[in-house]
Design a protein around this nucleic acid. Sequence first.
DNA 1: GACGATACCAAGCAAGCGCTTGGTTTGTAA
DNA 2: TTACAAACCAAGCGCTTGCTTGGTATCGTC
Lengths: 205, 205
Amino acid sequence: MNQDSILRSLVADNLVSDPAGARGRLLHEAAKLFRDKGYERTTVRDLAAAVGIQSGSLFHHFRTKEEILKAVMVETIRLNTALMQAAVDAANTHRDKLQALIRAELESINGQTGEAMAVLVFEWRSLSEESQVHVLELRDIYEQLWLEVLETLRQDGVLAADPFVVRRMLTGALSWTVTWYRPDGGLTLDDLTAQVVAMMGLTSL
Amino acid sequence: MNQDSILRSLVADNLVSDPAGARGRLLHEAAKLFRDKGYERTTVRDLAAAVGIQSGSLFHHFRTKEEILKAVMVETIRLNTALMQAAVDAANTHRDKLQALIRAELESINGQTGEAMAVLVFEWRSLSEESQVHVLELRDIYEQLWLEVLETLRQDGVLAADPFVVRRMLTGALSWTVTWYRPDGGLTLDDLTAQVVAMMGLTSL
DNA sequence: GACGATACCAAGCAAGCGCTTGGTTTGTAA
DNA sequence: TTACAAACCAAGCGCTTGCTTGGTATCGTC
């Protein structure tokens, strides 16, 4: 399963909007605007203009502005959970599984879904509490993937720290790359992955 | 120099507002509101109500709402730079200096200045570009402290990764603790510091 | 080629926003 | 006591916001 086929399968199951369709294009533009200007500073007029319609027409597709934010987050988590799962399955050793997870998360943050991932991190508070609960349930599945791999490394005696703490630290560290990492800066995502592994003292395994 | 005397010295030099004064109290309440609701969702009426005055009276102390956000950020950086400097100076070995920095940053994020630090991380985009430039200059001083210590560890052969990358990863990891760490959760800041050091494979030194 | 759903437009409403204004109270010092 | 500035209030202006409304294209289907 490569990335494209994973995406197509999710689209087929109606779990993620077709990026080529009207809804998918809007969500993509919304993610960009939300990341660049923030959710609150982005007006429905901005969103409408980005896809070339009138602001009122947005409400034919979404009932509220917040529903757009939620859709961006939900679809992003669904896609990335599937990508992570595939990355873990494809790796063999425990250490390689962790490296695959790190690499996959760096890619989701700094690649195609980067805008949406940034929104997930920085616009969290703009979601209503009810929506937060719903999105959190999805995120738990995602987190479980990480914890299982980290736990095995802990049992192998390779990881000295608590898996829960490590996962949260890695969440922060990897998310934060969105604020400084630029692919054209002479550092590839593979380099970056290697740096993280090195930082954790796992290079010589 | 303990924390209190550092604060007092900055207040005396007019670099930080007296927390007991009108301006200092407003900035503290503003930081809380900005963290809890976000800058955009916080109205000048909210800010005024938090200190018990009318919304229009705010503009006797600050020319614009953004000036309040900037003041929160500037004063927080000034205070924390001084605290970090003191923490580094007080430690002896290179490894202890790093541990002192980690501990100090965790404290600034999860202690007294926590609200303001969260604002610095999550409300950055709400600052005008001109203000961002000004605040960035202050932050560079702060960052230099870290880089010097990390560089020494690198030269000692203790740190395998690039100091610049490590600092940025640590920025993210430590900042992110504000979203999940709770002092009453059975994990002290000392524990947390130890976990970070362990995660970096620096325990046995 | 009539029909119904889907997608959209043009216009604007009600509410909330940052900020201004003109005037009053409070604190300080001669 | 007087004088003056700093601190604050009460009211509201002008603008932007999310969203609604009533109507018009567009398109697949029988």
